[in-house]
């Protein structure tokens, strides 16, 4: 797990450095798009405009098929977001339990993290089979199956990070609580929970892109045909690369969009801490 806890308080400080950290990647992206549109990128990659259509063509297809792209994107976002919430809540809960029972808690979490090693393509068909009796409506039961896949991929990073947040306290703070004979629950809610918030965001930074990816992969195996990932696959198999790229662009917007929303929420909620 890449559960790198931020050495908190430093990130996202608004200063002149932020301009360059945002501006340079954006400029690089613009440069890539210019090279792509002008065909230089194709020469470098030895690609043709059939399998790698130019951006203007992709944008053309996106604008022609807005309703369809929005419908599929909405399905993917629902799955990614629903799974993210379920997985994160479950992960946080596991971390709470592990903290409440420290003797086996840490070891238990190691076992939980083994779940992260199971590939999505192995879990997705299993979930599709397990949820077959959930609803008569294939869309509903597919949605649940996909969310459960995303949930599994999001649980581990949250449980490990939240556990660290609950336990990596400032050395004196726990002693202080003890010295004033604070109850266990008080220590938990007044000290551990607030301390875990930055760690929660660290977990979410891993989980949010992960949730979008696993939502799209789980769509491959779902009974009901919908979603950005499924459309990418259908169109590539049918050799409709330009259309597939339109959905890849949609996937990009979803992934980056959710990540930016997360950064904004983090910025707002951690404001008082810097």
């Amino acid at each position: 797990m890449s559960g790198v806890a931020m050495s908190n308080k430093k990130t996202l400080k608004i200063n002149s450095g932020k301009v360059s950290t945002v501006l340079l990647p954006v400029l690089f992206g613009v440069l890539v798009i210019i090279l792509w549109q002008s065909g230089i990128l194709h020469k470098v990659l030895k690609a043709d405009t059939f399998t790698l259509p130019v951006p203007s063509r992709i944008i053309g297809i996106v604008s022609e098929n807005m309703p369809s792209i929005l419908r599929n994107s909405a399905a993917t976002i629902k799955v990614a977001f629903g799974g993210l919430i379920l997985g994160s809540l479950l992960g946080y809960l596991l971390a709470m339990i592990a903290t409440a029972f420290p003797k086996w808690g840490a070891g238990g979490l190691t076992i939980v993290s083994a779940f992260n090693a199971v590939p999505i393509i192995a879990i997705a068909p299993i979930m599709t089979n397990l949820t077959k009796d959930f609803s008569r409506d294939p869309n509903t039961r597919s949605m649940l199956a996909k969310m459960l896949v995303v949930m599994i991929t999001c649980t581990v990073s949250m449980s490990i990070n939240a556990y660290r947040g609950f336990n990596e306290l400032k050395p004196f703070s726990e002693d202080l609580m003890k010295s004033i004979a604070a109850k266990k629950s008080t220590v938990f809610f007044k000290l551990r929970v607030p301390n875990s918030i930055p760690y929660v965001f660290t977990a979410l930074k891993v989980s949010v892109p992960g949730s979008v990816i696993s939502a799209m992969v789980s769509e491959y195996f779902a009974e009901y045909i919908i979603g950005v990932g499924r459309q990418i696959r259908e169109n590539i198999v049918l050799a409709q690369y330009a259309t597939a790229w339109a959905y890849i662009a949609a996937a990009f917007v979803i992934g980056v969009g959710l990540y930016i929303i997360l950064l904004i929420i983090e910025d707002l909620s951690l404001k008082g801490r810097r």
Binding site: L86, L89, L90, Y92, L93, D133, F134, S135, R136, L144
Partner: peptide, 16 residues
Amino acid sequence: MILISAIVPVMANGAQ
């Protein structure tokens, strides 16, 4: 949170 984690498996089996 406890409720949700309890409900999800029940729902999954509910519609049989």
